[in-house]
Design a protein around this nucleic acid. Structure first.
Lengths: 152, 152
DNA sequence: AATATAGTGGTTAATTGTGGGTAGTTTTCC
DNA sequence: GGAAAACTACCCACAATTAACCACTATATT
């Protein structure tokens, strides 16, 4: 499964009093018409928020839709992976609204760091990311991410 | 078979004294003209209520009747859940009426949690879901296999 | 210098979720 | 059968949230 998106780089932004966050314009420009200015926002594996362009999310959905509701483990898996996701479109200024649940989950207060990770975008609370960087082995994270993308 | 619906996310609502529950507007907006503001409501396999858009339900009926890939035991199992289905339309405020049988089955009192699961919507009693979350096995082998396979 | 773009902050208007009323219909029970 | 109760299908109302605009500043571009 290959992606046409190449989100890379790191940007510092803020969240405003209405829980709006700006998606960097360089990322927005990569969206296709079929994405309809829409992202799917959900929990990341670490304490961050993951953002997918709609079309990229649809690929994930396709995989998920093969799971049978007859299996109890499948049902639980589906629920747990879908319940934290939101569909959001960005406004004329390029901002999306982040749900309170995700703000809590990612420990977001004011200053954010937005990171492009190929086919998805990560939103981190700035301080949380700094302390996460300190406590986690950079190499482990890097290879873990790679293992998901590349089959060597 | 993939669906055109993308029901995802978790929402907290209440049921009122007339057994009306609101369908989240983000879900309602996805309905097509051919669905005629109508859902099919039935027993979920867990202690919850499953809701399908009318058009989606018709697909399921069709599959059920001619899917030979399912064992006869599976078909019987599914049928026993789906036979409790009833057709409901939502009112001008976006609410449907839930039957007493389904309210009893899903153990619904007042606070609800509504979860989008791709092509269907689950209605849970809030407390029931919380205790279900605790007892559901997310650590069995199959669940872990799913986590590895599906890159969310 | 003038123009355009990006990020941030507000204001206003529309939508959403929830509660209730009522007239008509169906069901229940004696 | 007929009265009482329960249930529908439409209404209206309203607070709170959300979406749609407008405005300002700073940086980049021509």
């Amino acid at each position: 499964m290959s992606s046409q998106y190449t989100f890379i780089g790191e940007y510092n932004f803020v969240i405003d009093s209405k829980n709006r966050i700006n998606i960097p314009s360089v990322f927005r420009k990569q969206l296709k018409k079929s994405d309809k200015k829409t992202f799917v926002v959900t929990r990341g594996v670490d304490s961050c928020v993951w953002i997918y362009p709609l079309g990229e999310w649809k690929k994930i959905e396709k995989e998920l839709s093969n799971l049978s509701s007859l299996s109890s483990a499948s049902r639980t898996f589906l629920r747990n992976h879908l319940r934290h996701a939101n569909i959001v479109s960005y406004d004329d200024q390029g901002r999306i609204i982040l749900s309170k649940q995700l703000i809590d989950y990612a420990n977001i207060s004011k200053d954010l760091t937005i990171i492009g990770v190929l086919n998805k975008i990560e939103i981190w609370d700035k301080k949380t990311l700094i302390s996460h960087d300190k406590t986690s082995s950079v190499n482990d994270d890097y290879y873990e991410e790679l293992s998901r993308k590349v089959t060597v």
